[in-house]
Design a protein around this nucleic acid. Structure first.
Lengths: 344, 344
DNA sequence: GACGCCATTGCAAGCGCTTGCATCGATGAT
DNA sequence: ATCATCGATGCAAGCGCTTGCAATGGCGTC
């Protein structure tokens, strides 16, 4: 039983007693085919189990039915969540999703050199990855719509959250509890891959923290700004460094829940109690934040992905680029890791 | 500055002063092109920034340079990890990865009905998803190599771990510590999507637990077998149910770390101490298991993905199906959540 | 010095679908 | 009854690459 060749349009045409052109039109639901004919064609196609050849179709139309998604990581909570969200809406719309993981290494350079998605996709989605000028040009050269999540690029639709505002809100919460000595765990310097999100959160931290210091007439502690690489281990180390300081923070704001988890662990190992001795506030509302009683800033990650998917669909059907990015709301989720500082 | 049409093979041919056929051969590194000619062609292509049209190439050769990856979830630790691993090796080999997330709903039926990856991929990778007979036939009808992770399918290469053996080892650890009343948190019944992994771990649990009961001349407690849906929340609920039993377990073996996390939480809320009052053992070695001091069975998830990637590459270059699955090793990681039962 | 061989290169026929344009009736208007 | 109109189809020329086969020419051989 040899490998049966897949059926072609002509086979269906013959079976239905019409021309290939008509089959093509009928199958795609294009107008201009008599209802009876269409029915007959569909029946013939079903009988043969016929499926169109994407390659041939793509060659003829220039469309691919695929969107390229470029991510820096796939195995981190935030990104996998995003991917899941966008995949859902694209799949519902009958589009396929081509995944490119730039990784942390030389993959990025190679990706932009080869541009493997060239002519392979109808649109490109970039997740949280700020593009260098040259990279943006490369992507623009593709001639496909570009949408981004978490960054704004000229000529691209984008969706994101108000990082600065959310971080300010988070910091204010700490201040209102009575904290004055607040540390920050963010990204290391220089920021890998050029991420801008950590910087926006850092800026918000500085703004609030320095404001408090000014009020109190104290000088801000620069060592309170630490980097945790957005990983649990990095958060652990950063918290360790903070504990080594003479001037110790009474609260810590981590730019991601994972880093906050790491901080919690270091604190526990050091015999310090949260929130009695130190308050910890995260960012993300990771699945496990609830488990660990972590107060945090919740962001609607899956919705960000879905919104991006819808933007892609809109652009693919001729929509124009929105003049301003879609900003989704965040929300402070208070759990057990934040409280007034000891002695208040 | 209008949308410049992308260059075609002919443009390169003209620039290099050769025929399109020669360009095609030169670009693909096929033998039978003089070295000087090849150099000239490559230079011309580089000058034009030429990139081949995948659609045209695919139409002509029948190859797509793409592999389809079918997953039940992308935003769970285990799966995102797997995807990351396989993506890495495929990308290094110049292949692209088309992601299909079946999701929990009707997506699966629709996927197999439409089979959107038909004629779009050179190989298919199925992650942890046992296939129904009809589904397997569908996939086989694609005529592409099939490899699976975590399940064995006739006619497919597969990679996985020894679930039964690993779970037995885990259970024995508990027994050696002195536990006799051991509960299990696995999948609910019926198992969603037909997953078999939970069943294999359950079987191992039963084997060991019943063995112990037999030795002791006690009757096994059927209520010790609970379902947690492989989520934190599910683990929480399952642990809650266990605590409601008259006959209480002194140790709990969870078939995934996420469920173990949930169990830990329930225990903490109930005022029980781990491991003093109850021991908890997980499965996976999730990123956060270390953080939560969870003893667990570590499985090399990223390596499973990479191995699968290599199997795909091998099959794509003509290799035969291995007669037996690749089994990667697991390892018991003891942390602070397991100890002898109270009173020993 | 003629001949055969082999490495290079070019020719041209696809690969399977889409689509502008022509064709063909049937319908409605005059 | 005649002709314009319009909907439904078919024709055929691509879309951009690959590849079997033929053509070409340089060389070694006898």
């Amino acid at each position: 039983m040899g490998q049966r060749m897949p059926d072609k349009l002509d086979d269906v045409a013959r079976l239905a007693g019409v021309s290939p052109a008509t089959v093509s039109r009928a199958l795609r639901g294009v107008s201009g085919v008599a209802e009876r004919t269409r029915t007959r064609v569909l029946a013939a196609a079903a009988e043969l189990g016929y499926a169109i050849s994407p390659a041939a179709s793509s060659l003829a139309t220039g469309r691919t039915g695929t969107v390229g998604v470029i991510v820096p990581f796939v195995d981190r909570w935030y990104f996998s969540r995003l991917i899941s969200g966008v995949e859902r809406v694209l799949r519902d719309a009958g589009l396929s999703l081509l995944l490119y993981n730039l990784g942390d290494g030389p993959g990025r350079a190679r990706f932009f050199a080869d541009l493997p998605l060239r002519r392979r996709v109808d649109a490109v989605l970039v997740l949280s990855l700020p593009l260098a000028e040259a990279e943006r040009e490369q992507l623009r050269g593709l001639g496909t719509p570009l949408v981004t999540i978490g960054t704004e690029e000229p000529g691209a639709d984008s969706v994101g959250i108000d990082d600065h505002g959310a971080a300010v809100t988070a910091m204010r919460h700490l201040v209102q509890l009575g904290h004055r000595e607040i540390a920050f765990i963010g990204e290391s310097d220089p920021v890998p891959l050029g991420f801008t999100t950590p910087l926006r959160r850092l800026a918000a931290y500085r703004e609030v923290y320095r404001g408090v210091c000014r009020e109190d007439g104290r000088v801000p502690e620069p060592a309170f700004e630490t980097g945790g690489g957005f990983t649990v281990a990095g958060g652990e180390r950063a918290m360790g460094a903070l504990l080594g300081l003479h001037r110790r923070p009474t609260a810590v704001f981590a730019a991601s829940d994972e880093m906050a988890f790491g901080a919690l662990r270091t604190l526990r190992r050091a015999g310090l109690r949260v929130p009695a001795d130190v308050s910890v506030l995260g960012f993300d509302d990771h699945d496990l934040a609830d488990l660990l009683e972590l107060s945090t800033v919740a962001q609607p990650v899956a919705e960000l992905g879905e919104r991006a998917g819808h933007l892609i669909l809109a652009r693919l059907s001729g929509g124009k680029i929105a003049t301003s990015p879609s900003i989704l709301g965040t929300r402070l989720v208070l759990r057990g890791s934040t409280a007034p500082p000891a002695g208040r």
